[in-house]
């Protein structure tokens, strides 16, 4: 924990220091590293599985490309597609689950450990502490996504050929542009997670048990994901935060189809504002006893 230097007027620097110490502490935790290791392991496993499956020259998915995850059939042609496949596989569950753990832990974890009141004794203000916690969670969103993407890129480069990228529309672009699109996709995936991060942060302010907050966030994620697949509920589905998650694939069209991407980012921003302000309302008015 960073020491307050007690100088009230040096707020911006102080808060940057707080952010830095928070991020440092989060990423030094064993559980964070374990989460990142799991995330990095997914692309490796997928890559090896596809390699073994197609080792005798067959094509991935055996023509049933529609059954498997998106882009799976393309991996053998171009290792870069492992990035898209891995992101498409981790985005529905692994990534938001790890975000849920980090976000759920952010405030409630401090309360469990009994360190929250000491954090608040420092003249940082609750609002700022909350912002720092949220910024830390969002940093993890970005890092987690990049870990998946980089691990997939390395695995793909080792196991499969790289080259021109075939877009969904059937047009080919150079590998460089493919890489740029992959980077853009990673950013969109990271931004897709800010909604669930805000929900997790809000839940984290409700309880003093870190485990309860994590479990609730992940449970909520699963519930919402199930609701998103029930056809009878299509009236509410456009407002569920995972609804447009797979829209990142629209960046692989030619020309790019922006409609769903915009809806996704707008929805995530809405969730961030609503649950962020709810977390603020809760955190700044409650009695901190632990």
């Amino acid at each position: 924990m960073s020491q307050a230097d007690g100088v009230l007027r040096r707020r911006p620097l102080w808060s940057l220091g707080l952010l830095r110490s928070e991020i440092g502490m989060t990423f030094r935790r064993w559980r964070t590293l374990a989460l990142l290791a799991v995330l990095a392991g997914v692309p490796v496993l997928v890559g090896i599985a596809v390699k073994i499956e197609t080792g005798d020259g067959g094509s991935a998915g055996g023509g049933g490309g529609e059954g498997g995850p998106a882009f799976l059939s393309q991996i053998t042609n171009n290792g870069l597609f492992l990035v898209f496949t891995s992101l498409a596989m981790t985005l529905p569950f692994f990534l938001p689950m790890s975000i849920g753990v980090i976000a759920g832990d952010s405030i409630a974890g401090e309360a469990t450990a009994g360190t929250l009141r000491y954090l608040l004794v420092a003249p940082a203000g609750r609002t700022r502490l909350l912002l720092v916690k949220y910024a830390t969670t969002m940093t993890f969103c970005l890092v987690g996504t990049l870990v998946v993407a980089l691990s997939a890129l390395l695995t793909g480069a080792v196991l499969f050929p790289l080259g021109d990228v075939t877009l969904l529309s059937g047009t080919s672009v150079s590998f460089g542009e493919g890489l740029l699109r992959a980077l853009a996709i990673a950013c969109v995936v990271a931004l897709s997670l800010i909604g669930v991060a805000a929900v997790g942060l809000f839940i984290s302010t409700l309880t003093t048990s870190g485990i309860a907050a994590m479990a609730t966030t992940v449970g909520l994620l699963i519930t919402v994901q199930i609701l998103d697949t029930i056809p009878q509920l299509d009236a509410i589905q456009p407002y569920l935060f995972p609804h447009y998650w797979l829209s990142f694939a629209d960046l692989l069209r030619d020309p790019v189809y922006w409609d769903q991407l915009q809806k996704n980012l707008g929805l995530q921003a809405l969730y961030a504002v609503v649950f962020g302000s709810a977390a603020w309302a809760r955190f700044t008015t409650r009695d901190i006893t632990a």
């Binding site: 009141r117 940082a124 609750r126 609002t127 609503v274 603020w280 700044t284």
Partner: peptide
């Protein structure tokens, strides 16, 4: 409580009752 939000970092004065402040803040989301 001692650890209420630090004065000076918060534009909401301590004058108002905590209850009312709570209602106003929850009003935002």
């Amino acid at each position: 409580p001692r650890n209420e939000p630090t004065e000076g970092t918060d534009e909401w004065g301590g004058e108002r009752s905590p209850k009312r402040r709570k209602a106003v803040r929850y009003g935002v989301p």
